[in-house]
Design a protein around this nucleic acid. Structure first.
Lengths: 216, 216
DNA sequence: AGCATAAATGAGTGAGCACTCACTTACATA
DNA sequence: TATGTAAGTGAGTGCTCACTCATTTATGCT
């Protein structure tokens, strides 16, 4: 089954779903994504986007009327479609397993989703940066991502805890620890410019989380 | 002894050490710090800084010839003076303890340094944001912070491991886990705009790290 | 007080930015 | 092939921004 490929390219698929979007518009989106991630949104000019996309500056404004709309077009599908879909598929996958162990869950989470995270790290980087600054974006992400995590991940955690596989830590803290550990690893790989290191360290992450979340 | 106060205001002290710096220049620095943290460096205008500092725009340029120099003036002491000093004092404090336990170390680290982190979170925020974008800053931080952590924290970790208090995890990974867990907590508190939550969650952090780093 | 030096001012300036629009090109349908 | 529609173009526009500088104000010294 090619489910992993499905997830890996979830973002591309969502983007591709817009069949009416001409090729040059997709190039604009792709160029924006790269440049925003490289230099930050505020430091990127529309001229740079046009040049990188191999397109005239007017083309940048054809579909998206402002630079902010361009940013929204990149971030919104990530938050409202890709992430929910990713979490849902993960939950489905996990539910098929009987007597799930902590380690199994963590391995599935980290090793299966790592590819996705690496692929979409550019969007993630932009998202983190802009969330620090824009109140509206921060709230929209919190209102979207929060409930999704609660509905997909928390029941799994409850189940694990019933099976005495998980410590008596509040669900939100478990989420914070897992996400934080993975995110920090990604961040370090990014700062070092060494993405191979990210995968290499995965076993350590699993081990650390496995012990940290074990019941007494 | 008021050592904690010492640390808490380390940054202010470093700033205050510049006796030749006129009052209005300090106001400029303070205003820049707040605005850069709130809105990001690129989104802050020199006019905004001048207004917030209660100063004419020309005054902003009196000591620091460019906006970039202003940023450097804020970040450099943090990286080259405050952080090293903080780590050194921490190492000294820890070395006085006999047969240090993992939990003692983590508690000292998290509870004693939390106040400092909260106070200097503004600088931290700016630092994280700008490191994502500026190659030069990223390298300078890595070249400064890396060796400091290695020289102060790693010997302590080695000692702990000899006493069978620490798992056989590479020192850099231990550092990543600890820093990452604390940083993520800080980040979450910031995104939620609730800094009280940061301290409240400290016991969970200590518990989680304590178990995650325990030897088998 | 008188002088010298540093600090502070704010109107002004040029560069670069996001965005526009009159126009050209490509494409679909009959 | 003719025609309507959408896509694409790039020189142009007005505005905001970082930065300057001639001038004024504060400070310290004798």
């Amino acid at each position: 089954m090619t489910e992993n490929t499905d997830i890996r390219t979830a973002f591309d698929q969502v983007m591709a779903e817009d069949h009416d979007l001409p090729a040059k518009q997709k190039q604009v989106l792709a160029a924006s994504l790269t440049l925003f991630a490289e230099q930050g949104f505020a430091n990127t000019t529309t001229k740079q986007i046009a040049d990188r996309a191999g397109v005239a500056e007017g083309t940048v404004y054809r579909r998206y009327k402002t630079k902010d709309e361009l940013l929204a077009a990149l971030l919104k599908p990530m938050v409202t479609q890709v992430l929910p879909r990713l979490m849902h598929e993960f939950a489905q996958q996990v539910k098929t397993m009987q007597h799930l162990t902590r380690r199994q869950l963590l391995t599935a989470l980290i090793e299966n989703r790592v590819a996705f995270l690496e692929d979409n790290w550019q969007v993630g980087k932009i998202l983190i940066n802009e969330m620090m600054i824009r109140d509206d974006l921060r709230q929209s992400v919190m209102l979207n991502a929060g409930p999704i995590i609660q509905k997909t991940l928390f029941p799994i955690l409850d189940q694990l805890r019933e099976q005495h596989e998980l410590a008596a830590i509040p669900n939100d803290m478990v989420g914070q620890f897992v996400i934080g550990t993975v995110l920090t690893n990604l961040l370090r790989a990014n700062l070092q410019g060494d993405f191979a290191a990210f995968s290499q360290r995965a076993p350590y992450l699993i081990d650390f989380l496995d012990r940290g979340l074990a019941p007494k």
